[in-house]
């Protein structure tokens, strides 16, 4: 591969991915609670890190030439980043809610605190009513 083309592609993908990670780090100052921080962290793992993987693959392509193993590992790394980070974010947000982390007071509608209108919220552990 042409050296200038490889440098340009590594620059575009690498710098864009790094900037996305930096932007999601800066966005953690804008939002106010843990759930929103988990939410704004998703672009870093779902888009920023895969772009860095693409930059690394382009660099490998320029350095060592085409290789099916490298392509397979790069595709697997992107899939792993997307799938694994989604599951990890889900687990972290679930445990964050379960452990009672505070949610910003202006969160509306907050379906976890109040059920939507029209839904009858029955207590499943309540003793059954005895009819006459």
């Amino acid at each position: 591969m042409n050296d200038v083309l490889a440098t340009t592609l590594v620059g575009v993908f690498g710098i864009t991915g790094s900037l996305i990670v930096l932007c999601s780090a800066l966005a953690m100052f804008k939002v106010r609670d843990a759930l929103s921080r988990i939410n704004v962290f998703s672009p870093a793992t779902g888009l920023g890190m895969p772009l860095i993987v693409v930059a690394a693959y382009v660099w490998t392509l320029d350095d060592r030439g085409f290789d099916w193993t490298s392509l397979f590992i790069a595709i697997l790394a992107v899939l792993c980043l997307i799938i694994v980070s989604s599951v990890a974010s889900n687990t972290l947000s679930r445990s964050s809610v379960l452990s009672g982390q505070p949610i910003h007071r202006k969160t509306a509608p907050n379906r976890l605190a109040t059920p939507p209108a029209g839904v009858v919220d029955e207590d499943p552990d309540a003793a059954p009513e005895t009819g006459d």
Partner: peptide, 11 residues
């Protein structure tokens, strides 16, 4: 809160 610290650890 601890949740924010956990997600920053991930970052």
């Amino acid at each position: 809160d601890m949740g924010s610290r956990a997600v920053v650890g991930d970052l």
